[in-house]
């Protein structure tokens, strides 16, 4: 059995057990009663509706927001990354400035800024598109992730030996053509583990969406606590921790396996 597999089994059994232990220690004899109280709330936390009737809130919202942000950030990140390795300083320096600025700013501040910077609704070609809190959250999260992906992109491209560039250019390829047809296909396997780590971080970051007022799992949790009283707060948060762990941990293990295979394990 491989090392990762052992860690995986240990984590998947151990961490829920640890959280259960914390739960029992905090509540003692009331544990049964508390479970009976929060059990009806589980669908609410997972999907934002009391009976799984709709899938637009709770933990599902976190997953959707993270997927959309990641999709946007991969496109913008690749563009910014191409700017980072551009030969012309007029493209490279501004790209590098934007990248550093976005990478060094706290996600919460960016989210807050987006909340106020983006209008309530925008008009495109006569259509009025309203920007819901979830859309603002997607944009706010995509910004810092863009910067990180640009950096991953740059690192991946630079890991490809320069001989590839030279031989392709001697065959008459232009720079962007080399990038698209020669370098990126080779760099992609190197970038995948880093991109997955980034997705994990992004998913963990979706917990901050609560400040934009999107109907994510933490907002739902806070609403439930406001209704059911502070007594259930610890239990609800243990459950939320467990949800995040069960989603992120397999990704982390998969990432480590991939890193092992590509041979770019972190120093």
């Amino acid at each position: 059995m491989s090392m990762q597999m052992r860690t995986f089994i240990l984590g998947m059994i151990g961490v829920p057990a640890l959280l259960a232990l914390v739960f029992l220690t905090v509540y003692g004899e009331q544990a049964g009663a508390i479970i009976a109280r929060i059990l009806p709330r589980v669908p609410m936390l997972l999907t934002g509706s009391a009976d799984f009737s709709s899938l637009e809130g709770g933990f599902v919202a976190n997953i959707l927001i993270s997927l959309w942000s990641m999709a946007i950030a991969i496109v913008t990140g690749a563009m910014l990354g191409t700017g980072l390795i551009a030969r012309s300083a007029f493209v490279r320096l501004p790209s590098s400035l934007v990248m550093n600025l976005l990478r060094n700013s706290p996600w919460l501040v960016v989210l807050f800024a987006m909340l106020y910077l983006l209008p309530f609704e925008i008009e495109i070609f006569g259509f009025t598109v309203s920007l819901s809190p979830a859309v603002k959250a997607v944009i706010g999260l995509a910004l810092p992730v863009t910067a990180n992906i640009a950096e991953i992109f740059r690192g991946g491209v630079q890991a490809i030996p320069s001989g590839q560039w030279e031989s392709a250019s001697s065959l008459g390829y232009r720079r962007l053509q080399i990038l698209r047809h020669v370098v990126i296909p080779q760099a992609l396997p190197l970038m995948v583990p880093n991109l997955m780590t980034m997705y994990s971080m992004l998913f963990i970051g979706t917990s901050l969406v609560v400040v934009t007022g999107a109907n994510d799992v933490l907002s739902v949790a806070r609403t439930i606590i406001a209704v059911d009283g502070d007594a259930v707060a610890t239990a609800i948060y243990i459950f939320v921790l467990l949800l995040f762990f069960l989603f992120c941990f397999p990704i982390a293990i998969l990432t480590r396996r991939l890193e092992h295979r590509v041979g770019t394990s972190h120093p």
Binding site: G11, V15, L18, I204, S207, L218, F245, F249
Partner: peptide, 16 residues
């Protein structure tokens, strides 16, 4: 310790 590391690494600091 391994459990501790995996738990804190894979959950949001805000929820913690």
């Amino acid at each position: 310790t391994t459990l501790f590391v995996e738990m804190f690494r894979n959950t949001p600091p805000l929820v913690q």
